[in-house]
Structure formats: C-alpha cells, structure tokens
Design a protein around this nucleic acid. Structure first.
Lengths: 259, 259
DNA sequence: TGCTTGAGCTCGCGA
DNA sequence: TCGCGAGGTCAAGCA
C-alpha cells in the first residue's frame, strides 16, 4: 500500500487526493458523505457512511453498505476537482455524456492509496457464443442427424444464428439464446417466415436455450415453433481448478451461515 | 473503523474473517489473489492484485484496478468458508442459483473491518416513469391540444403507455422509452394495429424518447409512425443542490485532467 | 416465488 | 465515434 491514512484531517486528505487523483493509483475512502449526480439523470444521496473508490482508469464508485451495485458512480472521469472548506468536496466530471458527480465529505475515516497490478484476463465460459460453438461441434445436442448448412445466414429480418436441415431434409432455423424472452420468439418467427418465403416447404424453427419458462414455451407452441434445452454443463469448457495445493484443508474449515 | 490490519499474516487474517464474515460488517481486503467462479457460467481469474469487498448484506465484490464492474462477484452469499494453509482460501456459496466463488489469497496487503451506517435513500429522477408523469401533466410536451384518454390501456399485444386523441380527434398511441430500439418500434406498430382493429380510422403512433438514432427513425417512417423528442431537462425534477456552504471555494480548487 | 422490464445500465465489438 | 447486443446482467415491481 502506498498510503494508509486513518482519520486524516481535510488538509491531509486534500493533499493526498491532489497527489493521487490521477491515473495509475487506486484510492479508497471510507467516510461520511453525501452525493449529488447530474447528467443523463439526476440524483441526490443524503449523508451516510460509504466506501468511495477511484480506480486506475478513473472509474469512480460510491458503495453503500449493501448491494452489488454502487449507489453512485462514474464509468470514466475526465476531470477531478478538490475543494477544501468546512467540508471536503470531490467533484468528478466527464464530457461524453456530460455529467458530474459531487461527493461532499463530512468525515473521513480511512483513506488508502495503492497501485494494483493485475495483468490477468478473466477467462469465462458459458456465454451465448459458447452455446453456438457447442452445437456446431456436436449438432446432436440439438437433434439427431441434424446437418449444418450455414451460420449467420442473412435474411431481410436479420441474421439467422444457425441454418440447417433435419433428417427428413426439412429446413431448420435455429435461434440460440442464453436468456430467451418474448422478443426471441417473435424474432424466430420472422426468420421462419423469411425462409418460408425463400424456400417454401416445411420450415422448422427451433429455439435453443439453457432455460425456459412456461409462458415463453406457450408462445412458441402458438407459433408452431420448437424448443430444445441445452445443458450448460455440456457447454462450459473446463478450466484447471484453482491450484490444488489446498486440498485436504477442509478439516480446518468452518462454515458460517449468514443469518 | 473497527479494524485496520496492514500486512496481516494468514493466521490473523483468518481469525479476523471468522469473526467478521457475517452480516453487519463491511470487510475490505487488498491483496494478491486468484479467483474461480462456477455457477450459471464458469470463470477463472489468475493471480493479480485486487480489492475484495464483503458488504453488510453479504454481497461479495472482487474489483480489479479498472472498470465500473467487478471482475467477480456474488450478489448475496449464503455461506462462507475460510481455509488457511499455505495460502488463504475464501469460499462464498449461494443456493439459488447454486453457485460458488473461491478466492485464493497469496498475500494480503490490507484488511479493514467497518460498520457502515447509511439510512439515506437515493433520490433519483430521470427514469422512464418520470417521462410518463411529465407528459401526463403537460401533454403539450408531445403535441399541442393533445387530450389524454387512458394510461396503461390493455390490448392483446400488451399495455399501451399512453392513449390519447389529437386536435382532429384521431386516436394517438404513445410509447415512451428512455432507450428506444428496434423492438420499441415493432411494439408500437403492434399497438397501433390493435387499436386500428378496435376503432378503425386514422390511428397515429408516436414514440416519445429523449434520444433517437437515424436508423430507428427510418424504421418509424417505414411504418408511418412518428417520433417526438422529449427534453430530459423538462422531465428531471429539481432537488436541492448539495449544501452550498461550499460556494466560493472555487478559488482554492485545482482541476486535474486524467490523461 | 417467479416473471417481466428498466437501467444514469456497462462493456465489448464492429462499421 | 456511433450503434448494436449480451450480461454469471442486477434489482424493482407485480402477479
């Protein structure tokens, strides 16, 4: 840690901010503050104890004691301002869109400065594209004897995810969605209509998704469309587990229930 | 701050976690760690310096040095586990959906515990509902001599935001969207068709939004639908600005450009 | 509890 | 730079 200041006065806090409120540094501030935002919308947050974080790309987060999401934020700040009077006012502005966050500190409990070094990229599997690749590798996930014709086939209504033929040579339009909704159904319907225009015959439409609700299923049935559930277990690529030098530690562990 | 531990060893860190890894406490950890996630998807994040936050509602955030969003997280953790070996392994699980985040610390630079008190609610204006209320109060924002008939009118295609008549007694279907897209256009079209079924005559469809793109505008025109831009300034309610005991401080201030 | 929808969405990709 | 779509979306509101 570059700096750890407990209960700094505003002079010290101001000075520290002036020095480290640029890129390269991560600044964390625990303190009592109120926050105003104006830009795409407008918000006001009265005094409360919060954790303010300025990241190294000038992202600003104001986290309350609860929730995944911050109460206020700014994805990328263009310019900072520090004003020290009876209270300490930190202003973060950005230009596009034009917006501003003002944080007025009445008390600072802790201010830390650090330079986080993190070159690792998050490797993640289970996105929509991974479903695509899975069914491309193994079309039988969707249906036995399914043959691929084309991927990303263009129609006037947009791009069809997968275009195929089944074992009876029917054309099959496949739409892949991780989180399907009503619009997905309408879109699939439009694709089927387009293909029907082009080829006539018995055109099948299949929605491939890892989960489904009864309501969407009924929308599909109303339109003579089909649903095939894909198991995400089949889709997710396996990574090496965390270094397993930790194995056998379970004896030392204790579980805590949170309420 | 309840505790501020610089460079604690794993014994001390483990002990602190066991004591404070329950609700009511906010725990912040700066350290070198790697993170595995498995649940709705699967991810692996190699070693790097990060800020780990456990909030008072048991939300877990793993923030890297950049970005608004955390690299890994868990919205609400049901059970925690701490294992101390060569490294310190923190496991957070939740039941629905079933998923797990494992954080393996190789070094802890700072660990702090606090209890944030924040009873203030965020007051925010500029949501879609605020646009609704504005045009309900002052229909002339959309068009002169527009008369309001009904809000949330049900049709087989869904609920119409605002149903009205213009000065020539034409029926007007209004769809309000903060962030309009192609689906918005299709939806409006379906509403107009439904109303046309019911009433016949000249049915107008208006999309009311604070912003618009050329593409969506052309979709609208293709379907003989209209667009009215609403100024968010007219929509946003004014709150009291931050306490202005700070006025006149600008002389002391300095601006910093972030690269 | 499950489903639907908006979000100051954010973020990444592609034109 | 803008537009589009996905997200481990989250979170609120309502049935």
């Amino acid at each position: 840690m570059e700096k750890v200041l407990e209960r700094p006065d505003f002079e010290e806090a101001e000075e520290t901010l002036r020095e480290y409120l640029r890129r390269e540094y991560t600044v964390q501030i625990n303190g009592l503050c109120s926050v105003n935002y104006q830009g795409r919308a407008k918000s006001k947050l009265d005094r409360g104890e919060r954790l303010v974080i300025k990241k190294q790309d000038s992202a600003l987060l104001v986290h309350g004691p609860e929730n995944y999401q911050p109460k206020n934020w700014q994805p990328e700040v263009d310019s900072w301002k520090v004003e020290n009077g009876e209270k300490l006012l930190l202003t973060a502005e950005r230009n596009s869109p034009e917006e501003k966050v003002e944080i007025l500190f009445e008390r600072i409990d802790l201010m830390t400065v650090s330079q986080l070094v993190d070159k690792s990229e998050l490797k993640i599997s289970g996105h929509e594209v991974d479903i695509h690749e899975s069914i491309e590798d193994r079309p039988e996930i969707v249906e036995e004897n399914l043959r691929f014709i084309e991927r990303e086939r263009e129609t006037p209504a947009g791009f069809i995810d997968v275009f195929a033929r089944d074992e009876d040579d029917n054309y099959v339009v496949i739409e892949v969605k991780r989180n399907p909704d009503y619009n997905t159904v309408l879109q699939l319907q439009r694709y089927v209509e387009e293909i029907d225009e082009e080829f006539k015959g018995n055109i099948r439409g299949i929605l491939v998704a890892p989960k489904m609700t009864d309501k969407i299923l009924s929308y599909l049935k109303e339109r003579d469309l089909e649903f095939v559930e894909v198991d995400m277990e089949d889709v997710i690529t396996s990574y090496d587990a965390i270094d397993n030098s930790q194995k056998g530690l379970s004896d030392f562990s204790t579980e805590y229930e949170t309420n």
